[in-house]
Amino acid sequence: MPQILVQDLAKTYRVAERDPGVLGALKGLVHRRWRTVEALKDVSFSLEAGELLGFIGPNGAGKSTTIKILSGILRPDSGRVEVGGLVPYQERIKHVARIGVVFGQRTQLWWDLPVIDGFDLLRDIYRIDPVCYARTRDELVALLRLERLLDQPVRQLSLGQRMRAEIAAALLHEPDVLFLDEPTIGLDAPSKLAVREFVKRLNRERGVTVLLTTHDMHDIEALAERVIVIGHGQVLADSPFEALRRDVLRERWLFIDFVDQAPEIDLPGVEVRARDGRSLELAFDPAVVGAPRLIAAITADYAVEDIHVEQPAIEEVIAKFYDLHGAAEA
């Protein structure tokens, strides 16, 4: 029995619409038009305990809606959801006691309270045993380097500091499952690294099941072995990240600076991407010609000053994937 089971999940929203301008506003008073937005059409996947799953997709694809249904906030129109054997929206109170959730764009800590008071309040709200609480809190404070922030009101924290405090707040009750909705949004590089490192350790060392959504592909690269790509409310791909890369954009790039003018290169499986004086950029398919053979062939015929191989950036892989599936936001 998987820890998280999602089957044929569907959810629609009703959105009020009106024509632009004053006339449109007046018309809306008399007759309101509703438009139905299909946030989720048919989403199915399952997750074993201890897995770390990355959930990606363009804006409006249905990632957050899925997380909100999994965490018991929203009720789906149809389909089956179970987390640890519980149906989130039916047994909300029992369910939410066992999960931790962080929404990167919102705050769960009390704006005017010092961080430590917010933690203490959560201790009572989750009815955590005081001894367990003190131990968990001290661990989290040390791991997330919160010592110096504890007596500051939340509103005085920087975004990076606040996000670390938010993650600690979501883990005080030692949940089995952690949902992270864009946890690195807006963070600077060191904060992103700190968050990634922490999530990775939490998953590896504590076996906490993690489901995270993000637009930062480096989050995915650093964290998730398994990736689900969602678009238009449907699962477009569910595979290890490397497999996704192989399927979508397997080419690699070779950058060469020649001693003289860059020559014409005509080899099977190789394309010229750009040429500029003495520099040449080639795209090659490693399944047809391997990097060592290609480099050997070129350096045998020409005098080369510098040479290096690159993989297309992960953003490009994903953009290409969205493109192939027509998934980019309209």
């Binding site: 965490s71 906030i73 029992k94 919102r106 705050t107 709200i125 989750y126």
Partner: peptide, 14 residues
């Protein structure tokens, strides 16, 4: 207004 109401529903209390 801010959507933080989601967190209100994430607490294991009535």
């Amino acid at each position: 207004r801010t959507g933080a109401i989601g967190y209100e529903r994430l607490r294991p209390i009535d």
